[in-house]
Amino acid sequence: MSYFSEIYRGFKTLINGFRVTHKYFINARKEIVTVQYPEERPVIFDRFKGEVIMPHDENNEHACTGCQACEIACPNGSIEIIWDRVLNEETGKKKKTIDKHIYHLSMCTMCSQCIEACPTGAIIWGQEFEHSVTDRSELTKVLNNPGSKVRADVED
């Protein structure tokens, strides 16, 4: 008899599993969770760590003094700063200024060390997430815009 009861139990459990899939099949339109990506955009939260960016204001000025704290803090060596000492005409002193703030996105692990190390808040997280490119070299970015300067009120 246990032979038949086992067959019965087997069928019952199989139908039980069926009920779940059937429920979703019937409600297929409502329950779909996938995002139709290029048309539907996913919600990107403010804190999302997509890439390191350097915000510039309307005068094409940024807050990076070229102190290299981020370069030292980076565990992967994904930041390189090319800097120079430029004579400041007002004070007559030579001041460190960045020529290029190079950021290798391909090596970045989004660990936040550089952003926390930055004393002037010159670099922040950007929320861009579509980083796929056809050439690896495009992932090496120069963060400061060409011809940009340090904002005057930024202290070293």
Binding site: V43, F45, R47, F48, K49, M110, S112, W125
Partner: peptide, 26 residues
């Protein structure tokens, strides 16, 4: 999604740091 909103990443959250957490909760 909860992680992304609070910690900034979905998988490699990197949220705890020595002495606390990186951001307050959202």
């Amino acid at each position: 999604d909860i992680f992304e909103e609070t910690c900034g990443a979905r998988l490699t959250m990197n949220y705890s740091i020595p002495g606390g957490i990186r951001y307050d909760i959202h």
